[in-house]
Every structure is written in structure tokens, then in C-alpha cells.
Design a protein around this nucleic acid. Sequence first.
DNA 1: CCGATTACCTGCACGC
DNA 2: TGCGTGCAGGTAATCG
Length: 296
Amino acid sequence: MPELPEVETVRRGLQPVLEGARIVRVEARRPDLRFPLPDRFAARLEGRRVTALGRRAKYILAHVEDGPLLICHLGMSGSFRIEQEGGSDTPGVFHHERSKDAAHDHVVFHVEPANGPPARIVFNDPRRFGFMLFAEGRPDEHPMLGGLGVEPTGNALDGELLAALLRGKKTPLKAALLDQRLIAGLGNIYVSEALWRAHLSPLRLAGTLGKASSKAHGMAGRLAESIRAVIADAIAAGGSSLRDYTHADGSLGYFQHSFAVYDREDEPCLTPGCGGHVQRIVQSGRSTFYCPTCQK
DNA sequence: CCGATTACCTGCACGC
DNA sequence: TGCGTGCAGGTAATCG
């Protein structure tokens, strides 16, 4: 489930192996994912060193020394897994347990990490909604990154900024929060979760939080706080889950979550004293989960 | 320009 | 068991 917290979790998992590593060889097992892979994709990466592994919104950014910036997006079903070379008794053997759908292993990076044995970093994506692109200049000049809004991590997103972003918008809050040009990194799950925490209805028009009244200020502040908290909590949970996952089979992927409203249709609302039940509705063609009793 | 809908692709759960 | 249907975390293109 790659929204920002999952992407950040994947980034942190890759970082120890990839940062400082030399890319020895790149296998592109098909010419395209969602988009065609860049021209000379493998050639422009092979032999070069990854200097830093960053993230912007749901994009993973691999900075390549004397090379392009590699922009990776996981789409809906993309994942990376790390396969490390075994011990001295099995030189050259990469062991891993979950290779069941190797049919969807589309890109393989063979790397020599700064520390540790050679490894392969495998990109698997059944639906192929993910993509990899090159940026030649500054990241924020790339069309895919340039229009992105504020990160919901850190302290930048406060009530005042959120109110300004939503001012005058006639669209429902759900759609506004999914708009990556406003806040970059929220997806279908965490929008529902953040709105539940803030006791705000996904159907409420976004502009009602952008007004000058003290009530609007209160709602905007509450929502900004809820967004930052749900993202921070999810990243913290991802980190701990990832450690377990890595110990288990050396792979990187998604972790199980417990959500307050997402995928909990008809179940009791978890707001203390509420007594309502979670409802599923469809907005802009996608599921929204919320409690009509306590979210207004 | 804006907001809403559709397209892209595969896998899976479900009902019959 | 098999088949049709709907649904799934993403963004981009298209339509009004």
C-alpha cells in the first residue's frame, strides 16, 4: 500500500544497501512499466555510485554520481526486495524465500554496497502502474516533481497553511486532500484516517476550512494536526514492522496496519462515546470510509 | 482553469 | 471447478 509512509519505509529499507553502493549491472526485463523506461536506462546507471537515497511525496529518488537522478514510483502494487549474497559456503547464491511471482520482477539492480556482500535489488510490480524516470537537473524542475505540494511530514503543514490551501475550493475535503499539488503524499487510506481523527466529513466542502472564522481556523488546525499525526504514526509503525520483515526473509514490502475507518465498513466507530458505525461511500470513483455520526 | 471521469494492468475475493 | 463481476494503495489523459 504505497502511500507516503510505505514509500518512506521502503526507502529506509533500501538505504543501508543502496546508499554509497556501486551499481554493477541493471537488468530491465521489459521495456516499459507504466511508461517506457528511459533511453539507455541500464547504460546510464551501470558503473556509477548511488550517493544518496531520498524521497519526495511518494517518489523514491536515487541520486547517482555523475549520472541522472533516478525517480521511482511504486504505483499501486510495486515493491522492492533485497536479495543478498549468502555466506562463504554458498558464494554467488542469492537466497530469498518469497520469489513466487518472479514473473513480475521487472527491473533488477545488481549492486556492490559500501558495506556488506553484493546484493540484488529487485523491483516487482504486477500491475505495472509504477514507473522509473530520469531527471537531468534539479529534482524540483522535473515535471513529475515540480508541481507537488507540501510534505505532511515535519512542521510545515499547520492550520494556517492548510486553510490557505483549501480557501475557495468547492471540492469535497476528500478530493482536496488527495490532490498532490496541495499536500504531497496522502493517498486513499490516510485521507480517510486523517479525516476521522479530525472529526471532519469527507463530504464537507474544502473551502469551509479556508474561511476567516474562528470555527474554520479550529477545523483547519485540527485537520493539519491529524494529517501530520497519522503520517508520523504510520511511518513509525512501518519502521518497526519492516525490521521484523527484514529479519524474516530479507525482503522489503508492505506491512499490515490497523486502521480506524479504512476497510471497516459497518464496524463500530472507534471514537470514544460515539456509538456510530463506519460507512463506505464512493467519491470520485474511489472508496471513502468515515463515520457519519462523529464526522461533520 | 477547474473538477470529475476514464484509462492504464493484473490479481483476488466473491457469488453463481 | 470455472466463470463473470467488482474492487484494489497510484497518476495521467481526457472530457465537460
